[in-house]
């Protein structure tokens, strides 16, 4: 009977992992920046090393997508954005795909390699960059491996979520609703 405990332990571990995942979730349902509030004007670095910030995109609708380049979910999200780039272009939504500050401490591919690999030809429509510490702290303080913000031309947060591969329909609905 003692040996049967190992089977119960296995099943308990299985259930615990599943429950923990449900509790902590995969998609960031809530962030530190509620929808309707102003998007913090934080800085990031473009591929050529130029430092800029979100005010440069004032007057444009922006999809700010913060990723970690070693994360498979982020890769799928980038793929999804790439496959649907015509939708974003038709709605004049500028996509900023920004690598989280120092890839959260573990170096993956460069953001350029990452986007080119998973977005393919659509990568030319995606502005890529590296987050400064303050941008990651402001937009992703909980350390979600990927999180995106739909920001209005006036700088208001319209929609927040993660995993574009799984939430693309909701994102498109949010864009259409603008």
């Amino acid at each position: 009977m003692k040996k049967l405990h190992y089977i119960w332990i296995t099943l308990v571990i299985l259930a615990a992992i599943f429950i923990l995942i449900q509790i902590f979730g995969r998609s960031p349902n809530a962030s530190s920046i509620p929808t309707g509030s102003s998007a913090p004007n934080k800085g990031f670095y473009l591929l050529n090393g130029t430092h800029t910030d979100l005010s440069a995109y004032s007057g444009k609708e922006v999809l700010l997508y913060i990723v970690t380049t070693w994360c498979s979910t982020c890769a799928e999200g980038t793929q999804a954005l790439g496959k649907n780039i015509s939708f974003f272009n038709s709605r004049n939504v500028s996509i900023l795909e920004i690598e989280a500050y120092k890839d959260f401490g573990y170096a993956g591919p460069t953001i350029n390699q990452f986007v080119n690999t998973y977005a393919g030809q659509s990568s030319r429509y995606i502005t890529q960059g590296y987050s400064g510490y303050n941008l990651t702290k402001a937009y992703d303080p909980k350390g979600y491996l990927d999180i995106y913000y739909l920001i209005s031309p006036s700088g208001k947060i319209l929609y927040v979520n993660g995993e574009p591969s799984a939430t693309l329909n909701q994102l498109e609905a949010a864009i259409k609703g603008v």
Partner: peptide, 28 residues
């Protein structure tokens, strides 16, 4: 690819800077 690790770090009292700097070391 979940927020499990950073959430556990935060629950343990880690600062935001620690979460941002450590999450990848574990999950990467």
């Amino acid at each position: 690819c979940t927020a499990l690790v950073p959430s556990l770090l935060a629950l343990s009292g880690a600062s935001i800077s620690t979460v941002i700097g450590t999450t990848g070391i574990i999950q990467g």
